[in-house]
């Protein structure tokens, strides 16, 4: 997970090379896409585990007993809206509009924080209803899958805020707009993964 933050760092390893790379893509962008490719396999493994175990509740609560679908739908909506604000941040960065870039980055981070806050609330509620981490195979695989996703969102928030601070103090080495774009790629990926997770966990009955 920290590796994703590391991508922030790689964003300026090689910006000079973008003009004459063999593929025409900058090194950073190519590296980021590859990294997201590896993330697909990570979430693929976690999702497979969940799908295998989602019906195995043992003596613990069943999914339908604990899930609050309207609540999670709202927090999912918030996360999806953060993709929109991220796009606006990238667009502003390409126009070299620092004020708007900063604003949209902060709003994106706030929306992300709302989502993570919702997840913390949800986890607490589940725990109080008798669904702990080790209650059943269902609960363990649920918490691992959504927890990994939550950590990814959290890392994204840290990157957004760190980037905002670095932009403000003019501390971004390398291309500013490309750095914003890279974090945008990561952020959209995390959102798309959530669409899949939300559908599989909450919308399709076990």
């Amino acid at each position: 997970m920290w590796f994703t933050l590391d991508n922030l760092a790689t964003a300026h390893d090689t910006h000079e090379g973008a003009a004459h790379s063999s593929t025409g893509l900058s090194n950073v962008k190519l590296g980021m896409w590859l990294f997201l490719g590896t993330e697909c396999l990570l979430f693929g493994g976690l999702i497979s585990t969940y799908m295998l175990y989602r019906g195995r509740v043992g003596t613990g609560p069943r999914p339908s007993q604990v899930f609050d679908i309207p609540f999670t739908s709202v927090s999912s909506f918030v996360l999806l809206m953060s993709s929109l604000t991220m796009v606006l941040a990238v667009s502003a960065a390409h126009k070299r509009d620092d004020r708007s870039t900063n604003l949209w980055l902060v709003i994106t981070a706030l929306l992300g924080t709302t989502f993570v806050g919702g997840q913390v609330y949800e986890f607490t509620a589940f725990y109080n209803e008798g669904m702990g981490f080790s209650t059943s195979l269902f609960s363990s695989s649920f918490f691992v899958l959504t927890g990994f996703h939550g950590v990814h969102v959290t890392v994204g928030i840290i990157m957004l805020l760190a980037l905002r601070g670095m932009l403000k103090n003019n501390k971004v080495p390398g291309s500013r707009s490309e750095t914003v774009e890279m974090i945008g790629l990561y952020w959209h990926f995390v959102d798309i993964v959530w669409i899949i997770i939300f559908t599989l966990i909450y919308l399709i009955p076990a």
Partner: peptide, 16 residues
Amino acid sequence: SLTGAINLIVTVLNMR
């Protein structure tokens, strides 16, 4: 391994 893999793929594809 993962960081190395990403690094070398980008190197081979982009820096010929």
